[in-house]
Design a protein around this nucleic acid. Structure first.
Lengths: 336, 336
DNA sequence: TAACGAAATGACAACGTTGTCATTTCGTTA
DNA sequence: TAACGAAATGACAACGTTGTCATTTCGTTA
């Protein structure tokens, strides 16, 4: 067989090959029940033979929608995999594909800039994943006809937002310490510019203050174990330190190793809680109690929020996905 | 000002508002130098005032291309973040956006099925991220007009492939042991169905056999630390075991902890090498030597390969991205 | 000022679909 | 078999761009 070199096979080509009209081919694709079976078969054979595939551009142009949701990744970090996974699965389920763009490393991007670029792409709505502050956050206005959801712990004046309840998770961990008889809780933070770290710190502070406890000076970390280790060395010398909340599991592990190297036992001398519940993957028999956020669920909610708002882009909502305290044995009960 | 309720603002609306022709508006957007400055300004003002945005569907329909590359995620795991990061950055740089779909959890998807769905979306080429075997791998034929690149360690009969050199990385680690005077190397594998694990095992085996050493029975792990710990307990009892290659860092850490719990020292009694070089994030002062793959680079290469092949979709190439041995102090030199 | 060529602008068709409305075909009833 | 209504099919326009070719405007030279 000679190879056909016509660029694209159109519905018209199929129609001619099958001896029916253009519209009938369209019907076979979009409302097959309205076409007689014998006709349908002819058309299917022709499509098969010619290798027909629906032209996305023409279809979208006519329909006025794309069936795609735009995702802007300002930042791509650990938890992002599960979040994207959730977004992608939910999109799949609702029959949407994703259109993705990413802020380039180093390049500074505003919400307005991202929205401008996204809105020239095939999207019916947009999700921004924003884990750090951005200059025009408060002044940003989304295109009126494109539902926009921002994944961020901050409230936005006009857009819907979805977030883990980072602050609530930190509060929960803190109260867990206090309810187990601890009189104070030290805090090891993540990178300064991280909104997650800021929120976790805020929740920690709030929980202590709610009980009339003056929060001690937080220790500055950078998410990695070594910074946790350094913090642990400092904390080991504080006689009033019985409880440490570290902004992630890696630093929590660093803290624990430092305490042990200083001759202190976890949890007998000092109790520790981390965030993200991922230490068990790396440490056998891990004892670390940790606050776990449901990133996948977060992604699902974000996507559902966009889809729900497609018809009413200017609606606005705020969704918080609660965390879960995964209890192991790194916290000692001081009561009794 | 009354809100205009017309659905979409078209170039024609802009043209009328600016008192010029449709084509002139088009020119202002696509070849601004061919338009007199005064005209350009009028058009820009009109676009601004009406909130005009180019219609992606119409533009793509006319141009016959989308400026989007499709990415199919069959599997979303740890290293995938960096890979997506690389793909997205490279796409950005080449002026492409990404269109993503994902295999749903549990749902079985073939390459053919994925290609069929992708080819109805706005894409000029496709990347499949395939880390496990799929039924129709060998028989799959990509659409003739869509450049297709598969990220997978296996060779494909018709499509271009890109992969980390997993096998080479394992060989490199193994030879490192042997060159340091070790007479044998034990291996702890990852999940059985993982192609990465299979390739790493293959490289390990090849390196030993190349030196005339009979590879010992590999120990089966599941990527997590606990399985490494279990393997470590077994290995601690083998007097001839001086070197262990674990298929990832988490299991390597498990092995090390088990050896220590059995009273053995790393590296004095047993040397260990892992894969992925991520233990330092979790363990302070980590000593683990590890083979690191450049996932970001992998993504960049995959995207560049697609873009390079847009004009010649049936071209075929095979790209291997080499790994790097990150030396720390978990391997003892037995020579001398 | 007339004549000319280059620069700027415009009219029209086309990309490949789907919606609207008209026409044809079919099966059923009298 | 004729008449009828429902089912199946088709003709044509339109979605909003860009390419082709024609026309108008402008600046320069004689």
């Amino acid at each position: 067989m000679a190879t056909m070199d016509k660029k694209n096979v159109s519905m018209n080509d199929v129609a001619v090959a099958a001896g029916v009209s253009l519209k009938t081919v369209s019907r076979v694709i979009n409302e097959p029940d309205s076409v007689r079976e014998s006709t349908r078969d002819k058309v299917h054979s022709a499509m098969e033979a010619l290798g027909f595939r629906t032209n996305f551009a023409a279809r979208s142009l006519k329909l006025g929608r794309y069936g795609c949701i735009g995702v802007v990744l300002f930042h791509l970090s650990g938890g992002a995999v599960d979040m994207i996974d959730g977004i992608a699965d939910a999109a799949e389920e609702r029959g949407f594909a994703l259109t993705m763009i990413k802020k380039r490393a180093g390049e500074k991007m505003t919400l307005a800039e991202a929205a401008r670029r996204m809105s020239q792409l095939p999207v019916d709505g947009m999700i921004f994943n924003l884990r750090q502050m951005v200059d025009d956050f408060d002044t940003f206005e989304a295109p009126k006809d494109l539902k926009t959801v921002i994944i961020t712990p901050m409230e936005h004046p006009t857009c819907s937002t979805v977030s883990d309840d980072q602050e609530g998770g930190a509060r929960m961990a803190c109260e867990y310490f206090l309810n187990h008889g601890h009189k104070n809780v030290y805090f090891v933070s993540g990178k300064q510019e991280s909104l997650s770290s800021q929120c976790r710190m805020k929740g920690w502070r709030a929980a202590l203050e709610a009980r009339g406890i003056e929060p001690p000076e937080p220790l500055q970390g950078d998410w990695n174990a070594d910074s946790g280790y350094a913090a642990g060395l400092v904390l080991a010398d504080k006689p009033d330190c019985t409880a440490v909340l570290a902004a992630n599991d890696c630093m929590a592990n660093g803290v624990m190793m430092a305490l042990r190297d200083k001759g202190l036992s976890v949890p007998d001398d000092v109790s520790v809680i981390g965030f993200d519940d991922e230490l068990y993957k790396t440490i056998p028999n891990s004892i670390l109690t940790s606050v776990k956020f449901r990133h996948r669920e977060l992604g699902i909610r974000a996507l559902n929020e966009v889809v729900a708002g497609l018809e009413a882009p200017s609606s606005r909502s705020r969704t918080l996905v609660s965390g879960v305290l995964v209890e192991r044995s790194s916290v000692k009960d001081l009561r009794a």
